[in-house]
Design a protein around this nucleic acid. Structure first.
Lengths: 158, 158
DNA sequence: CGCAGTCACTGCGCAGGGCAGTGACTGCGT
DNA sequence: ACGCAGTCACTGCCCTGCGCAGTGACTGCG
């Protein structure tokens, strides 16, 4: 029976593997839908209601607005999203997710969704609280860490 | 005070955000090191001792062996890894991580590593067990789901 | 009412990755 | 003993996604 210390290191080791395999699953789903993982990522942001602004979405996706324009082109072509004019500001537009391929998406995500659902149902309140806290604070920590990275670049360009 | 059900849905919502922000942090670290995130991912696999075989690493990274050859070229150029001959089979080679840029890498990961360490230290055994179980089984589930994706592709190629 | 700032968008160039083919090498079957 | 199929890393060629920098449309502040 492992003690606290061992469990903590086990968690620290399991974490990056989990993130990695999840990212690969994400990429696999995207490939099955004949779509890039960036498009899929953006679709998640849209369905999550995070934002509908191109500039903001580009920032969240870590890319330039120019690249996002073409990302939107692809997403419209693939029937993932559509452009709509912003009535309040004629320079802007709003990005709206399309329901067209939702069934397909849901089907591909089903196994993972089922796993998460079943697994979480088995946890008690204290365990769930710990998990939620770790995930939400981890998200904040990752975002802070991303924007506050120290400058240590010693690029080798040879 | 939220009940079990609310906590479970909160966890289900927090999960993809955590994975997403972590992936973006990963990309940010890679950019700071003037390296692609694929190179960084491979470096993690190497340091984790997962494998030293090019074919296996290519599979784990979800890419072709041809692409991996050039990935290795870049990693050698960036002093992240090196090639060494496999004494047992002269067709093969082994990939070895280089210590050269470990300090830089550790410095960039420090904030996240510190967060994880502190956060895990606050959890009791039962909570840690739940977390580790969720992560390890989630990793397995993601890998299985990746390889067993149903065929629902209705690509729009117009 | 002009002018700086912001919006989405557009050429251009680059780099990463797939595909398919190549030569080196292994080990199994005969 | 030896040929041959299989596997290894590797290499052109191509496509695509993205950054960069510049453009025109539009907004709102001075």
């Amino acid at each position: 029976m492992p003690d606290q210390r061992e469990l903590a290191t086990a968690a620290a080791l399991a974490l990056p593997r989990f993130v990695g395999s999840t990212a690969l699953f994400h990429a696999a789903v995207a490939e099955r839908m004949a779509v890039t993982s960036t498009e899929l990522h953006c679709l998640h942001l849209l369905h999550g209601g995070v934002s509908d602004s191109p500039t903001e979405l580009a920032r969240l996706l870590g890319m330039s607005t120019g690249a996002f324009t073409r990302l939107l082109d692809r997403m419209e072509r693939h029937r993932l999203a559509e452009r709509a004019p912003d009535p309040a500001d004629r320079r802007r537009l709003v990005v709206r997710p399309l329901p067209d391929r939702m069934a397909e998406l849901a089907e591909l995500y089903a196994p993972m969704a089922r796993f998460v659902g079943e697994r979480l149902a088995r946890l008690d309140r204290r365990q769930l609280t710990a998990l939620v806290g770790f995930l939400t604070d981890g998200t904040a920590a990752a975002e802070r860490a991303s924007s506050e990275l120290p400058d240590v670049t010693q690029a080798i360009t040879s």
